[in-house]
């Protein structure tokens, strides 16, 4: 039986394939954008709005910085303690229209040597961890292949 695909956090991303996006919210009064989403109130001190709508964030951005995790992080990060630790790469990405920086893991196989500050990256769906019944889904950043649209 196929395992169920479950987002690691509900409501933070959605869409399939090319349409995959992080999901933020935008204040109806001042147009401030929030990710992770704020649903109850706007955090702009000039505003005080209470009505926010879902908004997809840009699919592409530029690398603000990056690093990796050479040692196994503690729980609640999920990993198999029996298996040798495989470092993962973290990328902080600047989204031009939203003027914000969003962290994410890099797609599998992307190491720090493959990245540079300012490089264009795009959002892709990825699997954070799996168990017998679920694939826990997340977002990954991946360098934009040269020439690709």
């Amino acid at each position: 039986m196929a395992r169920e695909r479950v987002p690691v956090v509900a409501g933070w991303f959605g869409g399939e394939g090319e349409e995959f996006r992080l999901t933020g919210t935008r204040c109806r009064s001042c147009e401030a954008v929030f990710f992770p989403r704020e649903d109850a109130f706007c955090r702009n001190p000039e505003c005080g709005g209470r009505e926010l709508d879902e908004v997809p964030l840009a699919r592409r951005g530029r690398v603000w910085s990056y690093t990796d995790g050479r040692y196994r992080p503690p729980a609640p990060y999920v990993c198999d303690p029996e298996r040798e630790w495989q470092p993962y790469t973290l990328v902080a990405v600047e989204l031009a229209a939203e003027r914000m920086v969003v962290l994410g893991q890099a797609a599998p196989g992307v190491g720090v040597a493959d990245l540079a500050v300012g490089m264009e990256v795009e959002l892709v769906p990825g699997v954070l961890n799996e168990d017998e019944e679920h694939l826990w889904m997340t977002w990954h950043w991946r360098p934009v292949t040269e020439g690709a649209l």
Binding site: V9, S65, Y66, P73, V78, C79, L103, Q105, V117
Partner: peptide, 25 residues
């Protein structure tokens, strides 16, 4: 809790991001 669950982002991970940024900028 979320930064550990979703990203495995330890405190040194943030320090690494800042350090790389300084190298680049």
């Amino acid at each position: 809790w979320l930064r550990f669950r979703v990203l495995g982002a330890t405190n040194p991970a943030y320090f690494g991001l800042y350090a790389r940024r300084r190298i680049a900028v």
